[in-house]
Design a protein around this nucleic acid. Structure first.
Ligand SMILES: [Mn+2]
Ligand SMILES: [Mn+2]
Ligand SMILES: [Mn+2]
Ligand SMILES: [Mn+2]
Lengths: 218, 218
DNA sequence: ATAATTTTTTAGACTAGCCTAAACTTATAT
DNA sequence: ATATAAGTTTAGGCTAGTCTAAAAAATTAT
């Protein structure tokens, strides 16, 4: 059984290794965990001894099959709780992350099974991120940043890359939500900003940063 | 802000001081917390420094007003979560305590407000124990052990004194639940056991121990 | 190829929470 | 009243997780 802290490190390593097959560096982990490199080295040794990561001194770590499975269970719990908070307790999508950060560590397989059932087995969380099923399977849907969309095809908003509260609040304000239909009206050469139409009824400009952080399917 | 451990100690002290106005002893706390007296003394000093308890060396502790308020908030969360687990996730009443023991420590006032609303402001938990409201007010209803009931009046089951899983399972098996109507058919002199009628349709014998642990109103 | 810089690891120290063993205080028995 | 027993506190030590500072290794620049 993993401690609260071990779960958090392992989840961070999972997310960092998700994009790209190369090793995760000590400094990257320290950065995302808001700790110092020395602390990371300590924890790396513990997780390595438990065979959750493969550690090569000075060259970073790679998550193992077993580690990935454990991490996915934490991610599953995090996203199920976020879904619960939004769908059942009427939280807004920018309020749920910090609470889920605590709830994800509750230890009870029965609880998470019942929660999943109560929510009717959702496949994505409020930010459009996929929810691993109880065996750890994830439904991967190919998505691209809105900033890389070509012509004026039918575009659907699928998820946010980074769901900071301020970004999410901004999206709500301009009327963008997961599942919204979008079309690109114009692309400004100068700064890469876009003029888009949301749900065929609202025109807004969004910055390139925002467009890069919005994942869609065409 | 209290730590997980501080909250647990404070809650234990609250429960121990609930019955009786005299000081709670180090050994009593050690007993209920499954720790050693030396550890309790350490923690007592911390809680005392935070003015949550009043501590007199060698004579035990008394909870302060502030300490009581903090403890009540933990109790409130514990009982709201137990209610949620039973009413929304279909847990049985003997499965909820250990999970609530974890959930009670989640820090979010918004969460507990929304949960309370979602459950439509329940006043008792699945074991019949009162749920403090957000200001810490508790609805006290005078209850007596079934073993002390006199004649054959209309008796209603209100709560269990100690809700161990095995006792709760036993109650379910014989058809006793919170709110059930009971009448006493016979009292066996020899061992203090009772023959009772549940909901005017089921006759069973229950031991004196069981009858002492069942709180009712006449 | 060597030197300077950056990153990582190690060494040593701190806190929270726990323990055992010894010292101390209070309660009980004669 | 004194001796014994029981309960409490103190002293010292342990682990998990954190830190700073110093040492070691890898990377980058000259
Ligand atoms: Mn989140
Ligand atoms: Mn977390
Ligand atoms: Mn309980
Ligand atoms: Mn607890």
């Amino acid at each position: 059984m993993l401690s609260y802290t071990e779960e958090n490190y392992l989840k961070a390593i999972y997310h960092l290794s998700d994009s790209g097959a190369k090793a995760v560096l000590t400094s990257e982990i320290a950065e995302t965990m808001n700790t110092k490199a020395a602390s990371v080295t300590d924890m790396i040794k513990k997780l390595s001894n438990k065979n959750l990561i493969a550690y090569e001194k000075y060259y970073g770590v790679k998550i193992t099959k077993q580690g990935r499975t454990e991490a996915l269970m934490v991610v599953r719990k995090h996203r199920l709780w976020e879904t619960f908070l939004v769908q059942k307790l009427q939280f807004s999508w920018d309020e749920v992350h910090d609470v889920a950060e605590q709830l994800e560590h509750i230890q009870s397989t029965l609880l998470i099974e019942k929660l999943d059932e109560f929510l009717e087995y959702p496949t994505v969380d409020p930010h459009g991120h996929p929810i691993p099923d109880k065996s750890g399977k994830i439904l991967e849907v190919r998505q691209i940043p809105l900033s890389e969309c070509s012509g004026r095809k039918k575009i659907i908003v699928r998820s946010v890359k980074h769901g900071s509260p301020s970004f999410l609040q901004y999206l709500s304000k301009i009327g963008v939500y997961i599942g919204a239909g979008i079309s690109i009206l114009d692309k400004v050469e100068f700064d890469g900003s876009l003029e888009i139409m949301i749900d065929a009824k609202k025109k807004v400009f969004i910055s390139r940063e925002a467009a890069q952080n919005l994942l869609v399917t065409e």
